[in-house]
Structure formats: C-alpha cells, structure tokens
Write a protein that binds this DNA or RNA. Structure first.
Length: 467
RNA sequence: GUCCCCAUCGUCUAGAGGCCUAGGACUCCGCUCUUUCAAGGCGGCAACACGGGUUCGAAUCCCGUUGGGGACGCCA
C-alpha cells in the first residue's frame, strides 16, 4: 500500500506556524516514502470558513514549497457521503438518535461541572425508545461507543496510549441539521482517501480515541497515527494569535527564506543526530517518524535568524537580489532603476554575510541606490571633522587618477595615499566610508567603490569633502 | 474538576544501561582575522526537575511527587 498522508487545515484563519510544520512533516514523510501528500480543506463549519483563509493556506503552502498531489479535497462537498455513512451506522444499530436540545446539554454540563464530575454526554438517549422523542425536534445522530474495556492507540511518536472507554462519551456524528461533524467527516474522508498515516498536532491526541472507535464501528482499519508535539511561544505558553502564532506570510514579510523556514521548522521537533543545517533534499532522504521528539518546543527567533543567515549566504546573488528588491523598494518608497539594481547585484557578495533577513539586507544595501547627496547618520557625521573633510579632498584628487577603476587599483591608491599622509589606513577608510555610505559600517570600502563606479564614488566624496 | 501526554544547558536538541568528568547548534562572553561592521577560525559560561526503586552499573528502565502542555462542543 502506498504511503498516503494528508494535511487537513480548517479555513478559519491563516496558515499558522504550527500548521506549517505539520504540513512540512507530512510532506517530508510522503516524499521520503515516494507516497502521496494530499490537501483537504476542512470547511464543514460554514459560518467560520472563508475563501480568504483558503487562499492564505494555499499561498502559504506554495511559498513554503510544499506541493500537494492531486486536487484539493473540500470536505463540505462530501457531506452527503458523510451523512450516508452515519445513517448506515444508525441502521446497523451502531449509532442512535439523540433528541436532547443544546440547552439541555448545556445544563447537563453545568451540573457536572458544579458537582466536580467529568464533562461528558451521559447517554440519556442511548437506550431510550425513539417513540418517546419530543415532537418537532430534529435529532442528532450519536455513535454508540463501547462503554467498557479500553481503546488503545499505538502512536508512532508517543508510543502506546490507552484510555478507559468509560472516559469517552457518545460523540455526535450528524448534527440536527443533517450536516456532519468534524470527528465524523475526518474519519470517513481518511478512509475514502486511503490515508495510511495521520500525522498531526498532539492537540488531536484525545480525538484519536474517539476516531478509532468510529473506525471500528464502520468496520475499517484505523491508519497509523503520529502526534507531533505542539509549538509554544517564546514564553512557554501555548502559541496563540497573541503569542506570535503568525501566518507564514508574516515570516515571508519579515524577510525569511522559505528554505530557511523549512530547515528551522524541521529542527523544531525532529532531529537527525547533531545535524543542524539540513537542506530540503537531505531532509526528504532522512525524514522518519522515529526522529520526532515527544516534548513541545518553543519558537525561537534568534535561532531562526541564524538559520536564515546561513541560507542567505548560500543563496545565489541574483536570486537574493531579486527577493530583496521589494523590501528595498518599500523602504525607499520608490522603484529601483536598472542601474541601481545592477549595483546591488554586484555588491551582493559583500552584503549578504552582513544580514540575517531580507529586511536587514535591504537596510544595508540602501546606500548603493541612495541619491546624492547622501544623508549622514550621527556617527558618520562625527567622523567628518574639518580635518577629515580636507583629507577627503586630497584623497579625491588622488582617486580621480585611478584607471582602470578596479578594486585592486583603488586599494593601492588609498593605501599609498594613507602612507603618504602618514596616516593609519583606518584614519582614511572611516571618513571615506562615511562619505560613500553615510554610515560607519559597510562592506569593504574598496569593494564599495568598485561597485559604485568612479563617477558616483568621486561625487559622493566631493559632497562631503571640504575646500 | 476528569482524562491523555510531556520533562537533558536560557532556547532547539544528541543520548535507545556502561562509549557521558553528558555532545552539537543558537544566544551571550573572550581571543583571532581586520579599513568599519559582519562572516570565518579558536576558546569559554551553561543542563540530565525532585524522591524512591531495579541493576555490578541509570540521563537512559519502573513507581511516586512537582512542574508544564493538551483535550473534555450539534468548532475544527
């Protein structure tokens, strides 16, 4: 049987980081085994499902590079099938009609809570004669779950997990309006789609027992389950919208590379010995459920930054420049002309080891496309003393004679000038850097001049030089 | 409250009874390289939650305590 997994988000919001990791693990598992990775949108909650959320999930998966097989399955479309299975169970006596109203059940739970009892449906209609049903009340269909014995799940991550059946109540399969519940739809769809492995967050752990009972009632063999621990926020609390559970598009907008995101997310909960940098093709080769950890992990931006910095250094200059472009244009508030973009591209080798994100990369690349005269930051301004300005004037004259305008020739000229002036190179380089970049930190100054070209370099120096 | 799960440096983790005076990565701190800032190289700080067992021997197995998380909907 070919390995078949699915990622099954509900379209009630963006694709958050936990969902992204679940999708990644499923995708890796499928690709590792040469199996299929299916996408199913769980939109049975008509009130909360939105097209915007569906789009966000699809965009997020695409950005992360997680391609699914076949067509997207929309769960709601299959509701007739779900109802059919529920009614079959009803006919077989494995399910029953429950006429308790929502208000009645709410009251039941309130009483249970008040008396310190477990919150469970008490099975009040389980064995009651349907002829006693109140008039004009549409019933829900509940599973007639076993009341004795225990349900065992052999989880591929958590190991064997057991629960006493008396802890579980009779879950609703079909709502009063005839629509299926999540619990029921999931099981029917997973059976129909031939899902062999269910890899999902451990918040679904307790659902699993109920779902296994449903599989048994339907007469199907349950798939293998693998519950991966949740991701927590930096403070250890549950990752919620308030605790940095951002959509993947937020990470894209913060300037993270998708391959870095995949690597970081992979290491959050999965390990292969001491390996840290694991490119995606390597991950596909190595991924296994045995490497998944059992305890929750905290999301750590510092580590993500470091991983991202690594992948930025490895990325080809042209790709990085293209990816960074929108960030730089946003920062400038206007487009970059081809001339400026060419500079950024040429300057990329010196730029990329100095940034951890595309946002930072745009920040430090900005001077390459800045218009003259450049604004000087405070530290740069401080360096440009009257003496320094005069020095820059003399240096400019010397530089004007450099041909061809190449890095090596420029360096020779500047070093020769410093020597002639009896100045340390730093005394010359720092004011020069200020004039050329408007800051005190930048790529190597000879590289900067070479990239800028002689005309622009001399112009910028002249802008700051005295006399 | 009931049930389920988890527990190694600040964080992510390696560790499947002796290889552990517990390894790697990130962060932080030094040193080095150096025209600045990075990157790189070298080095440092830092952990087996606690208590009982089992065993010749336990971070690793068992039990308990504590702590954390998750689930208890006609939401998914």
């Amino acid at each position: 049987m070919t390995v078949t997994v699915r990622f099954a988000p509900s379209p009630t919001g963006f694709l958050h980081i936990g969902g992204a990791r679940t999708a990644l693990f499923n995708w890796l598992f499928a690709r590792h085994h040469g199996g299929r990775f299916l996408l199913r949108i769980e939109d049975t909650d008509r009130q909360r499902s939105t097209q915007a959320a569906i789009d966000a999930i699809i965009d997020g998966l695409k950005w992360l590079g997680l391609d699914w097989d076949g067509d997207i399955v929309f769960q709601f479309v299959r509701s007739a099938r779900h109802a059919e299975v529920a009614r079959r169970l009803l006919a077989e006596g494995k399910a029953y009609c429950c006429y308790a109203s929502p208000e009645e059940l709410e009251q039941m739970r309130a009483e249970q809570k008040a008396r310190g009892l477990p919150l469970r449906y008490d099975g009040r209609w389980r064995d009651r004669d349907p002829r006693e049903a109140p008039p004009n009340v549409k019933p829900v269909i509940r599973l007639k779950a076993p009341r004795t014995g225990e349900t065992v799940v052999e989880d591929r991550v958590q190991g064997r997990i057991t629960v006493a059946n008396e802890q579980l109540d009779d879950m609703v399969l079909l709502r009063a309006d005839g629509t299926p519940t999540y619990m029921h739809s999931v099981v029917v769809d997973d059976i129909d789609m031939g899902i062999t492995h269910v890899i999902r967050g451990s918040d679904h752990m307790t659902n699993t027992f109920r779902q296994v009972q449903l599989y048994r009632a339907i007469g199907a063999e349950p798939p293998q389950f693998a519950h991966i621990p949740l991701i927590h926020g930096a403070d250890g609390a549950k990752l919620s919208k308030r605790h940095g559970a951002l959509g993947v598009e937020a990470y894209r907008d913060m300037g993270y590379l998708p391959e870095a995101m995949r690597n970081y997310l992979l290491r959050l909960g999965w390990a292969h010995g001491d390996d840290e940098i694991i490119p995606t093709d390597q991950a596909v080769e190595w991924f296994d459920l045995g490497g998944v950890g059992q305890s929750p992990a905290r999301f750590d931006f510092a580590k993500l930054d470091s991983v991202n910095a690594h992948y930025m250094r490895e990325a080809p200059d042209a790709r990085l420049a293209a990816l960074m472009r929108p960030f730089l244009e946003k920062k400038r508030g206007k487009p970059i002309d081809p001339h400026g973009f060419a500079r950024v591209l040429r300057g990329m080798p010196g730029l990329k080891p100095r940034a951890q994100t595309l946002v930072q990369l745009a920040d430090i690349a900005a001077f390459y496309v800045a218009d003259r005269p450049l604004p000087m930051d405070d530290k740069a301004q401080k360096l440009l003393t009257p003496e320094a300005k005069a020095m820059l004037g003399r240096l400019r004259s010397r530089l004007a004679g450099v041909t061809p305008w190449h890095e090596v020739a420029i360096e020779e000229a500047v070093r020769g000038f410093a020597e002639a002036e009896k100045l340390g190179l730093g005394k010359v380089a720092q004011p020069l850097r200020a004039a050329l970049t408007g800051t005190t930190a930048s790529p190597g100054i000879f590289e900067v001049m070479a990239v800028l070209g002689s005309e622009e370099s001399l112009g910028r120096i002249a802008d700051q030089a005295g006399g």
